[in-house]
Design a protein around this nucleic acid. Structure first.
Lengths: 180, 180
DNA sequence: CTCCATTGAATGAGCGTTCAATCAGGAAAT
DNA sequence: ATTTCCTGATTGAACGCTCATTCAATGGAG
């Protein structure tokens, strides 16, 4: 069926784009790795740009939900939240690589990345602020703390797939660093 | 003089490679931005690959020195250390972008990046371990703490140039997170 | 006159893209 | 049951363009 073929091409392109960059990947390479002819690729997609756009639409990053957790302590919430973020990062590491590489050359990609990053940080910093007001956390800038944790998780996943114990240790240091 | 011209070309190539990626930058673009002809570029460099290699040799990242600080408290050492790392990151942000983009496609670049990252983390984690033994810090895995801090600094510089107060707040949270 | 620095047109390879030509399989007609 | 027809999947050669790279020719300083 046509839909399966589309997805097959998308998955191959996703891998190659993440590995060698969009500019560094040729249509021919994608066709070869997908075991189809160049012409067939153009039957399903209008070109390289359309392929990239389809990848972005096919694989959307989840957004963390923390609004209902504002009254629960960080020891319960943060480990779960971080676990969710890490699962998402691990599952979508290819598209994150594409985002990273293309954000400096493509302004539309840069906007998408910035928006996602901001919403992610806002969700976490909102929760941290709520816990400050609840008296659980000491005084510190919640946005910066959020970016610190997200940045650490992010760069861990870009250099390797981190072990569970590594993530736990980071969360542990972070929590001790913000408690009152 | 010949040397100045070489450096002029290198600086232009560095900027363009960081902005658009190596594959996404053409020799013609480099020549135009450097205000020289294509032929002259080939007079000074044997091609794109040699240009990239020359950039890596021209701009070497500094390594943080922490060995003599092992007996000094974290409140004195870490802010200074982080300041030094940030200065280095800010000054070399272009080549770091190139490293980041190319490490997945070029294994030689990947090795260089990995080696640098490890030595940087080792220097910091060695200091943290010494402070643990001195009783200043609580029990935690020093390597992971080092990677957490470096990762946070790293990703801050990749998304924007962080303010001084942002760095200070991060160091503050980190120190409180590891003190006994 | 010599030696570099410097030019830019020429070359050939490889790129993204197009398209006329097949192929396969099911529906319709005989 | 056999033939005809149609539609969408599939191919790969061909096109025009841009790329990296080369090189014969020019310029100027000493």
């Amino acid at each position: 069926m046509a839909c399966e073929r589309r997805i097959q091409i998308l998955e191959v392109a996703l891998k190659l784009f993440a590995e060698r960059g969009v500019e560094g990947t040729t249509i021919k390479q994608i066709a070869e790795r997908a075991d189809i002819s160049v012409g067939l690729l153009y039957h399903y997609f209008d070109g390289k740009a359309a392929l990239l756009q389809a990848i972005f639409e096919h694989r959307a990053l989840k957004l963390p939900q923390l609004e209902e957790m504002h009254d629960k302590p960080v020891e319960d919430v943060l480990p779960l939240f971080v676990q969710g973020v890490c699962d998402d990062l691990r599952e979508n590491i290819e598209i994150i690589w594409i985002f990273f590489r293309e954000q400096r050359s493509s302004s539309t990609v840069a906007e998408q990345v910035e928006k996602k990053r901001q919403r992610c940080s806002q969700s976490l910093s909102g929760y941290l602020r709520a816990r400050q007001e609840a008296g659980e956390l000491r005084d510190f800038p919640p946005e910066i703390a959020a970016r610190m944790l997200m940045g650490a998780l992010f760069s861990s996943h870009l250099t390797e797939t981190p072990e569970r114990e590594m993530i736990c240790a980071m969360v542990d240091i972070f929590i001790k660093g913000i408690k009152s």
